[in-house]
Amino acid sequence: MIARTTIFAALASLAGMTAAIASAGSAKEAEHHHWHFAGPFGTFDKDALQRGYQVYETVCASCHGVEQLSFRNLGQKGGPFYLNTCPAGFADNVDCSNPNENPIVKALAAQYRYQVLDGPDDSGDMVERTPLASDRIPGPYPNEVIARLANNNALPPDLSLITKARHHGPDYVYSLLIGYADAPATVEITPGQYYNPYFHGDMTQALKPEFLDAEGHVVDGVVVPVGGVLAMAPPLVDGIVDYADEATPETVEQYAADVVEFLTWASEPKMEARKSMGVMSLIYLVILCIILYWSYRRVWAGLKK
């Protein structure tokens, strides 16, 4: 019957529709990068996660926090520095799969570039101390006011959920990091601002006066460039982070890919557990469907002579 199939197809498309609606704005579409974590069986590339953490700590952490993450998360199952067993030389009673006893995580916390504010101590004073594995990863600024003062009144967003908080987040962050370009000749960029074709914005504001008429409208024939301006200077340059593994290129593209891998893990550290449970659940449900369908046919067989 036509009505039935139409309704079903229509409802199905309605269900999938919202994902397709992207917010309006002028920006270049993000480059599609092939991610290790993409797809129903995708997992995080552990080496990339470790390099990505290094890029984050060396570069991004100068301005951005990851407030949802604790050091211990780095050593939990699925995390960048998870250890199944301890390296040689550890006592038998140490369990390195416990993130708080993981020697790499303890060292990363102890050597972190920022201190943790703790207290009050016995004399009632707040004290700065070296982070422990159980601490949240401290951010660069104690509060928003100081963050803005240090950044020309711009607020660097927290990065712990950044790849989930943007449409096609991983591709977007990657494109933004590698996409800085010289501003087109038609626009004037104020000092402290940087043009990026992947950043959502309205470049009409930045057009040079000669391309606007008396009422502020764009003169015919002038194309407003896509993209926007942001307060973040291009953060990555070739060679800025020194990778231990000599085989990995120290390029902007490689850094960007690695840090996006890390930030995607930071956004959803349980992704691998979710996908593996999903595969098992679907196998279970499909078998259940088959058994129930067979039971249904069998129970009803007596009626439909």
Binding site: T18, A19, K164, R274, G278, V279, L282
Partner: peptide, 11 residues
């Protein structure tokens, strides 16, 4: 389950 496990933020 397909939504929950493989596209949980899709909607």
């Amino acid at each position: 389950a397909a939504f929950v496990f493989f596209n949980p933020d899709g909607l």
